[in-house]
């Protein structure tokens, strides 16, 4: 069986993954134009300022879209079917995550929970709020 994919934290993304281990959903906010940014990066995609700061998101949002996965690669097969969604956070950015929701609906209010998968990794999932 192939290895389950896992994120490799880098200078852009390490604070996010350190945050999930501490039970925080961290996103970036541009101190020049005040907009929130996800995924994390080195410069603001709205104004190109390199003054992105980390903030802790409220962890609440709505389901922008979702899919129930039935066919997938070997390492996830035992879990199928499962739901993956795009969450629109209240801060205005979108991120992908597992939905721990039996019957998700677009627009459903959700909140983050953290799923510790190893000593080094905690993944954000979303539950119905």
């Amino acid at each position: 069986m192939s290895e389950r994919p896992y994120p490799v934290p880098d200078r852009d993304t390490a604070p996010f993954w350190e945050g999930t281990l501490q039970g925080e959903l961290r996103i970036q906010r541009c101190s020049a134009c005040s907009r929130h940014v996800f995924y994390p990066r080195a410069v603001c995609p709205h104004c190109l300022a390199d003054s992105l700061e980390w903030v802790v998101a409220a962890g609440t949002g709505t389901v922008y879209s979702f899919t129930e996965v039935h066919r997938t690669s070997e390492e996830f097969r035992a879990e199928a079917p499962f739901a993956v969604g795009l969450i629109e956070l209240d801060e205005g950015v979108r991120l992908m995550a597992r939905l721990d929701i039996a019957e998700p609906v677009v627009g459903m209010p959700v909140r983050v929970v953290f799923n510790r998968v190893s000593e080094d990794l905690s993944l954000p999932h979303f539950k119905e709020a």
């Binding site: 290895e3 994120p7 979702f66 996830f76």
Partner: peptide
């Protein structure tokens, strides 16, 4: 899907077991 280390921005999408590209079109 991918296995093992995922680097760069893809690390926020290739870790969930979403089959690609079909899962994205499903969204």
């Amino acid at each position: 899907a991918r296995s093992g280390e995922v680097r760069g921005p893809a690390q926020f999408e290739l870790i969930w077991g979403l089959p690609l590209p079909v899962g994205a079109y499903a969204l």
